[in-house]
Computed example of a mutant assay.
Amino acid sequence: MAQILVVDDELAIRQLLTDVLEMEGHEVRAAADGLAAVSAFEALRPDCVVLDLMMPGLDGYGVLRRIRGEDGEPVPVIMLTAAADRESAARAWVDGADFYVAKPFVPDDVVDLLHRLLYEGPVVGVV
Rank of each mutant, 00 (worst) to 15 (best):
Val20Ser: 08
Val20Thr: 15
Val20Asn: 07
Val20Asp: 09
Leu21Asn: 04
Leu21Pro: 02
Glu22His: 06
Glu22Lys: 12
Glu22Met: 12
Glu22Trp: 10
Glu22Pro: 02
Met23Phe: 11
Met23Pro: 00
Gly25Ser: 04
Gly25Ile: 09
Gly25Leu: 05
Gly25Trp: 04
Gly25Met: 03
His26Arg: 05
His26Ala: 05
His26Met: 05
His26Thr: 08
His26Tyr: 05
Glu27Gly: 12
Val28Ala: 04
Val28Asp: 07
Arg29Phe: 12
Ala30Asp: 10
Ala30Pro: 01
Ala30His: 02
Ala31Met: 06
Ala32Arg: 14
Ala32Gly: 13
Asp33Ser: 01
Asp33Met: 02
Asp33Tyr: 00
Gly34Met: 11
Gly34Cys: 10
Gly34Leu: 10
Gly34Ala: 09
Leu35Phe: 09
Leu35Tyr: 10
Leu35Arg: 14
Leu35Asn: 12
Ala36Glu: 15
Ala36Asp: 14
Ala36Val: 09
Ala36Lys: 11
Ala36Gln: 14
Ala37Cys: 11
Ala37Arg: 06
Ala37Met: 10
Ala37His: 05
Ala37Ile: 10
Val38Asp: 12
Val38Tyr: 08
Val38His: 06
Ser39Cys: 03
Ser39His: 11
Ser39Met: 11
Ser39Leu: 12
Ser39Thr: 14
Ala40Asn: 07
Phe41Trp: 03
Glu42Val: 14
Glu42His: 08
Glu42Met: 08
Ala43Glu: 15
Ala43Cys: 02
Arg45Glu: 13
Arg45Thr: 14
Pro46Leu: 06
Asp47Phe: 03
Cys48Lys: 04
Val49Ala: 05
Val49Asp: 01
Val49Glu: 05
Val49Met: 09
Leu51Ala: 12
Leu51Thr: 11
Asp52Asn: 11
Asp52Gln: 08
Asp52Gly: 10
Asp52Glu: 13
Asp52Arg: 04
Leu53Met: 15
Leu53Ser: 07
Met54Ile: 15
Met55Glu: 12
Met55Gln: 11
Met55His: 11
Pro56Ala: 11
Pro56Ile: 04
Pro56Gln: 08
Pro56Asn: 09
Gly57Ser: 10
Gly57Val: 13
Leu58Glu: 02
Leu58Asn: 02
Leu58Asp: 03
Asp59Cys: 03
Asp59Ile: 07
Gly60Arg: 03
Gly60Val: 06
Gly60Lys: 00
Tyr61Pro: 01
Tyr61Asn: 08
Gly62Asp: 07
Gly62Cys: 07
Gly62Lys: 04
Leu64Phe: 02
Arg65Thr: 13
Arg65Ile: 06
Arg66Gly: 05
Arg66Ser: 14
Arg66Met: 08
Arg68Lys: 08
Gly69Leu: 05
Gly69Glu: 09
Gly69Tyr: 01
Gly69Ala: 15
Gly69Phe: 01
Glu70Tyr: 09
Glu70Ala: 15
Glu70Gly: 05
Asp71Gly: 13
Gly72Lys: 07
Gly72Pro: 03
Gly72Ile: 13
Gly72Ala: 10
Glu73Lys: 05
Glu73Val: 13
Glu73Thr: 14
Pro74Tyr: 05
Val75Pro: 00
Val75Lys: 02
Val75His: 01
Val75Glu: 01
Val75Gln: 04
Pro76Leu: 01
Pro76Tyr: 01
Pro76Cys: 00
Val77Phe: 03
Ile78Pro: 02
Met79Arg: 02
Met79Lys: 01
Leu80Ala: 14
Thr81Lys: 00
Ala83Glu: 15
Ala84Arg: 05
Ala84Asn: 11
Ala84Gln: 06
Ala84Pro: 02
